[in-house]
Write a protein that binds this DNA or RNA. Sequence first.
DNA 1: TAAAGTGTAAAACGGTCGTTTTACACTGTC
DNA 2: GACAGTGTAAAACGACCGTTTTACACTTTA
Lengths: 175, 175
Amino acid sequence: MDIKTNLIATAERLFDRNGFSATGMDRLTQEAGLSSRTLYKHVGSKTVLMALVLGVRERRFMERLDVQTVDEIFDVLAQWTRDEGGRGCLFLRSYGETGGDIPEIANVVLTHKEATRAKIAEIVQRDLGGGDHGELTEQILVLFEGAVAAAVYRGMDAISAARKAAASLVAQARS
Amino acid sequence: MDIKTNLIATAERLFDRNGFSATGMDRLTQEAGLSSRTLYKHVGSKTVLMALVLGVRERRFMERLDVQTVDEIFDVLAQWTRDEGGRGCLFLRSYGETGGDIPEIANVVLTHKEATRAKIAEIVQRDLGGGDHGELTEQILVLFEGAVAAAVYRGMDAISAARKAAASLVAQARS
DNA sequence: TAAAGTGTAAAACGGTCGTTTTACACTGTC
DNA sequence: GACAGTGTAAAACGACCGTTTTACACTTTA
């Protein structure tokens, strides 16, 4: 595998599992199997690496979120959690750990959140057969965010609860 | 004010605003207006301080959450966010930043989450006039958690959306 | 008035942080 | 066969980490 790709994948795993600050560069170079010199030649700094990690995560997530119905949104989340584990939203965690003070990271996070909201809006609109549904979109967004967060301690139950709640709200909006 | 109380309050503010790891002890002693010797005499270590912070936050939060209806749950959250700012759940952030690997902290976090769930269950049951409502409780919990998380980037809109969604689900459960 | 307790100020502790540098091996190319 | 490019291994960088220690001032109490 490409060095940089492998490095970013390793960093994503370690940052997600152990936290950003708690993950030292020594551990990173060791687990990625490269020297610190090569690491810094490829990514420049730890902050840039974190931004790159969020960038690839954003792309992988958005690819998966390319669905047609509100129900499927939560299927995607359930599968994602089964595949990658539920340790909370890495974007919000990065934002919180840096106090929102590092623009490189804050930008990626806020852009990701806006893209997610826009995607949910699109799915809601399609699922309901057109029309404006800003309020329902915000509700589904909150359910989605809540499912991610609550899955940390409630597991898959949080996701299926969110799914059912969303279905209720959609059904109510239809009638 | 009592030294330890003031220290914990200062630590809560700094940990919440800037993150746990990102907050150094120098900054803490400086802003709390005491020497490092006094700090360590009173709390022992940074980890213990973090656990103490979560402890007082838990008590303050639970006092506020002592309400009777589902609607009021979200009123409490709205007021809390206005008073203290919405930077995400400090419990989950602490858990994430430490990878869940520090028992002292993990215990406080998971206990707090279970207490919150139990309190919501009690409120839901009272609001619906008795009976078992495990599924609805889980849905309200997810909405609450989602409102906290989404408020970081959507502000108060996330909270009022959660409030309305919860009201819809409660109304549906009543009929 | 001596002792014990509690506080501050500040230097120092050993360790670890992110990052840079040095020294060297291997590879493909003109 | 020199050469630039890219990699590793590992030492070293200065800064900062959480924590402990030293030295000293003030208050309370017996």
